[in-house]
Amino acid sequence: MEPQITHRTLTHLRALEAESIHIIREVAAEFQKPVMLYSIGKDSSVMVRLAQKAFYPGKIPFPLLHIDTTYKFQEMIEFRDKFCAEIGAKLIVHTNTKAIEEGANPFRLGTQKCCALLKTRALLDALAEGGFDAAFGGARRDEEKSRAKERVYSFRDSFGQWDPKNQRPELWNLFNSRIDKGESIRVFPLSNWTELDVWHYIYLENIPIVPMYYAKKREMVVRGDSLITLEHNMPLKPGEEPQMVMSRMRSLGCTYCTGAIRSEADTLPKIIEEMIQFRRSERENRVIDHDQEGSMELKKREGYF
C-alpha cells in the first residue's frame, strides 16, 4: 500500500462534472430510449457538453429534443441549428402545430394556458411519439424553492405527471431506473449545480452560448420594470415606443415571457460579475413563475420540467 496523497483532490466544478457524467452514462446504459431536452439556453449548453464528455471519443448516443413554441428568438434557432450540426448531434424539433393552427398564442390565451399547450403538452406529446423512456433536463435545484427537493431521477407516471409524494429515495450514486411501460423518468444531471457554477464552467470550458446572453444595443419596449423585445409582432400598448437599449437576456425562453435587463455586460466575466452584484434569481424576469404562488410546482405536477 502506498501513502495517500492529498493533492489528488477535485475542485468543486470537476467534482460536479464527474457526478453529472456518471448520471448521463447511467441513463444511457439503463434505459431503452433516452433523449436530451435541449432548450438552447446556457444550462442546456453545459448539459450537452457533459454528454459529449461522457461518451468521448464516441458521439452522444441519444438525440436532442427541442420543443419549439415558435415564439423563440430567431437568434436562438440559428444558434441551435449551427451548434447541433457542428457537434454532429441528432436533433428532433417538436411543435404543437395543432394548437398553433387553432390560434394558440400568449397574447390571446395568457401565459399560463399558452405554456400548458405549447410547452407542457408539446413536450408530453413529443416524448410519447418518440417512445422515450428517459428525458434529460437541465434544471437545477437552486433555481426555485420547489426544486430543492427534486430527485436526480424524477419519476413520471404514464400521463407524464409528477407526484411529489411518489418519488424514490436516492442514496449514494445508486439510481433506480426501473419503470413500467408508459412510465418515464426525467433526469437532471445538473441538479447540484448553481447558476454561478454553470457560468463558471462555461467560462473555463469555453462553451458556446447564444449571443443574446451578451449585452448590446437592442430594440426594446420598456414596460414597467421589464424590457420586452419586438419579435413576433408583439402588440404594443398605447403610448409605447420601441427604443434602442443596451441590454441582454439573463435567461432564454419565449419572446413574450422573457424580459431583458439593462446591462453593459458584453463578456462572460462581466456577465458573472453582474450576476454576483445583482444577486437576483435568473427567473425574476420570467413572467411565468410569478403567475401564481408555487407556480413551478403546479407546472411540474402537470408534466412541465
Partner: peptide, 15 residues
C-alpha cells in the same frame, strides 16, 4: 478583483 481573476481563483475551491 476583476471578475476574470476571480473566476480563476475560485476555480480551485473544494466541495
Amino acid at each position: 478583483m476583476p471578475a476574470a481573476d476571480w473566476l480563476v481563483s475560485t476555480a480551485q475551491t473544494e466541495l
